[in-house]
Amino acid sequence: MPIISLKNVSKTYKAQSKGADRDGKLVERVKKKSSRLIEAVKNLSFDIKQGEFIGFIGENGAGKSTTIKMMSGILYPSSGEITCCGLVPYKKRRENAMNIGVVFGQRSRLVWELPMSDTFALYKEIYRIPAERYERNVKTFVELLEMGEFFTTPIRQLSLGQRMRVEIALSMLHDPPVLFLDEPTIGLDVVAKKNIRDFFRERNGRDGTTIILTSHDMKDLDTTAKRLILITKGEMLFDGSAAALKSRYGDESVAEFTFAGAPDKLSVAFDPAKRKLSDIIAEAGSRGEIENVEVKSADIEDIVRKIYNG
């Protein structure tokens, strides 16, 4: 039985748009307004099994955050059915909240003036976490996310990376079986990103926490998610593994040649399934003495960029 299930889910917004006169100029004095419907999510269906690590991909405005907000009970879908841990999230929002942890990378829930320990203590009361479990979880997360050195520092004095670690610990304090992570690594440096990715992988592997992660940094997804769901303009474009994505949309590699005595490099894109690297090297050799050759395989970012660009 899936832990999360979406069946034909759509979300439509009514948006106000300013009218224009016959010449196409904006009517400045009398601003005629008309409403138009925006379909943020269109007929989306998928199931997620317990313990899966899902990478949710899409360009800005693709409908990723809207879908996450519907799955977490923040928004009502316009049509379709959603269940999370056997509950309809927007109808049983309070019960559903006990089963989920949510991190919005661009918003903070921390009490700015006080140390993290105060926000943790507040969440202990909100989620009615038994004292023993609370102590154990705080100890575990402080160790795993290396937060000991700033445990008693007011939040306002922490770096972005440190604050994000606190946010992540906060979302997992009540041991939710499902974790929604909306851009949790945004604005972080490479070291902080890697530490957070490692933490997610560890939690997913050890506890079987189901993780749904959205990120514009494809490395986040390439190194963590076992399954990718790609949506564009609210519709699903792909659902499968990274390998399947590469095979469907072209696993293009690039060979980059440096020639002796020549300042310019030669880049040759090729599909390893169709052309042998040895043939390409032989062909490039006819142009001059090869000093170095570097071959780069396509990563998810290249493929997604290719899909977005049509």
Binding site: R93, F104, Y127
Partner: peptide, 14 residues
Amino acid sequence: QSGAFDDVLTKPVS
């Protein structure tokens, strides 16, 4: 206005 109200709706509270 900032969208931070989402947080209230992800908590187990009325």
